[in-house]
């Protein structure tokens, strides 16, 4: 059936089954491929988007639950935290294969919006749902601290 999705400020109508995960609607119907498929069962975090500003795993979020809700993807994140995180990610050469990094960045930006100066423990709690098989974790941690410092200044 037709579903109305509000994504990155625009409204779209897509004719897909109710149980279609948001991930596949974004990727296959709206052409927003920055959000990645890694597991399909909310274990890896590669598909992280914001729903009404909160990080969600789009691979287990059916489109039928999104009526009237605002979805934001990696393509449209903006603001001080997003800028700081993406600059820190580039400056620190965090990515290797890069496939999980959309999800990592989404989780990191959400963390910095909640906690301005996260501790290592805060980072562990906010980021341990995002798997990186290249194991760039040491640089992810450093980049979040770096981003937090730039937000202070």
């Amino acid at each position: 059936m037709a579903h109305t999705l509000k994504v990155n400020g625009a409204t779209h109508s897509v004719d897909i089954d109710d149980d279609t995960p948001l991930l596949w609607a974004l990727r296959d119907n709206l052409g927003l491929t920055g959000t990645k498929f890694g597991c399909g069962v909310a274990q890896c975090g590669a598909c992280t988007v914001y729903v009404d500003g909160k990080p969600m795993r789009s691979c287990v979020t059916p489109v039928s639950t999104l009526e009237g809700r605002e979805v934001t993807t990696i393509e449209a994140i903006s603001g001080r935290e997003a800028d700081a995180v993406q600059k820190a990610w580039t400056a620190g050469d965090v990515p290797q294969c890069g496939y999980c990094q959309s999800g990592q960045v989404m989780s990191a930006v959400a963390l910095l919006k909640e906690i301005k100066k996260p501790t290592d423990r805060d980072i562990d709690l906010a980021m341990n749902g995002n798997i990186c098989r290249c194991a760039t974790y040491a640089r992810i941690r450093s980049a979040i601290h770096d981003a937090a410092r730039t937000l202070e200044g």
Binding site: R27, D28, G31, T33, Q86, P95, G98, Q101, S102, V105
Partner: peptide, 16 residues
Amino acid sequence: SADKSRGKAQFAIDIS
């Protein structure tokens, strides 16, 4: 690094 930090890098799964 820049493209991969912004969801812009293109992988095979992104092809349409």
